[in-house]
Design a protein around this nucleic acid. Structure first.
Lengths: 192, 192
DNA sequence: CCAGTTATCTATCTACTACTAGATAGACAA
DNA sequence: TTGTCTATCTAGTAGTAGATAGATAACTGG
């Protein structure tokens, strides 16, 4: 089946990007893992840029769905933000970086179409965060000084960076410490 | 002169790693920019892993010196932390990532000796931050809940991540917003 | 002036890169 | 049966990767 192979390619490619980076793997690496020839992968994804774009757009769409799910399943800002953290934490669990954190870092050496997709991911995250932060403050579920945009920038940066640092120091606790410390200061003193 | 060429190689290689990543450039890229042949670079750095190690260890030593300078030139924690931010901000200014932020992300596809150097950089930063935070709290120059380690993790992660996100969104203001917002909450209310 | 050192060159190697052309085999439909 | 579509294959392209051997200057100290 075509769809199955294409999905396999995407799954393996995603893992390789998340661990080694865009220039750290080849079509052959993917092909060997599946048990086909690299030429067959060009059938599904003519160029590596095509593969990259497909990779990020799939990732972004899946992420957008999960963000929507968080909203419907959790009414309050603290829980919503905790779930947001959990999305990143789950990725780190098997030694992977956020796909867009990795590609964002490597942007200087990537095909332009890939870069556009990556930017889109961050825009999505920030917009979601700003929304959650605004609503949460209005409902007095969380408290923070300054504008929501600054806090969203802070939070997103923190999570992306914490994944890199935690993995580089081979200590996932560092991610948890950093994320939890941030969530803590967002809570109003009354709720503590 | 030998030293001059070796330095040129390191300077160019560093810029290329910071913008494209370790696997995003070749000896030839460096050679062409200097105006020599790639074989000549192998004379100075026999393997790419050697180059990588030299790159990070030079970066780390320079960074350590700057951190020491900050301590001697600034007595109070808020100023020290502001200077720490400025080190990262200066890197971002010409569209570069922290060398170790980039390599930390790509760790899964790097030679082991390079990885060790990268870990060393983060250990250095964390130790410095923890020290500054402890002293600053004791002197009541800054205020924070929880242990200094968690705040240091948070801060370092925030800066590394903010560089990636800001560059990916082509908006360095995002870095400033995130960093300043963090510095703000560390100040005691009385000082505001 | 000679010997050794340093830094570069030319030329080459092997392995791999992304990518392509054309053949093939099976599935499905008219 | 005939034709089309899908997904793979074999076999190859041109170009690049990191790396090496050996020649060649240029400088340096004795």
């Amino acid at each position: 089946m075509s769809a199955i192979t294409a999905d396999k390619v995407l799954d393996i490619a995603q893992r390789l990007v998340q661990t080694r980076g865009y220039n750290g793997f080849s079509y052959r690496d993917i092909a060997e893992e599946i048990g086909i020839k690299s030429a067959s992968i060009h059938y599904h994804f003519p160029s590596k840029a095509d593969l990259g774009v497909a990779l990020v757009s799939r990732y972004r769409e899946a992420f957008a769905e999960e963000l929507q799910d968080i909203l419907t399943r959790n009414a309050e800002a603290p829980k919503r933000l905790k779930c947001f953290v959990a999305l990143f934490r789950a990725t780190l669990r098997d030694d992977r970086l956020c796909l867009c954190g990795m590609l964002g870092a490597e942007m200087g050496g990537l095909p332009a179409p890939v870069n556009n997709e990556v930017s889109g991911f961050f825009i999505l995250c920030e917009a979601w965060l700003i929304d959650v932060l605004k609503q949460g403050r209005k409902a007095e579920e969380i408290a923070f000084r300054g504008n929501p945009q600054a806090v969203a920038d802070q939070f997103l940066s923190l999570l992306e960076g914490a994944m890199v640092v935690a993995r580089a120091m081979n200590d996932t606790d560092r991610f948890d410490r950093a994320a939890n410390a941030f969530l803590r200061v967002l809570r109003t003193p009354d709720q503590d």
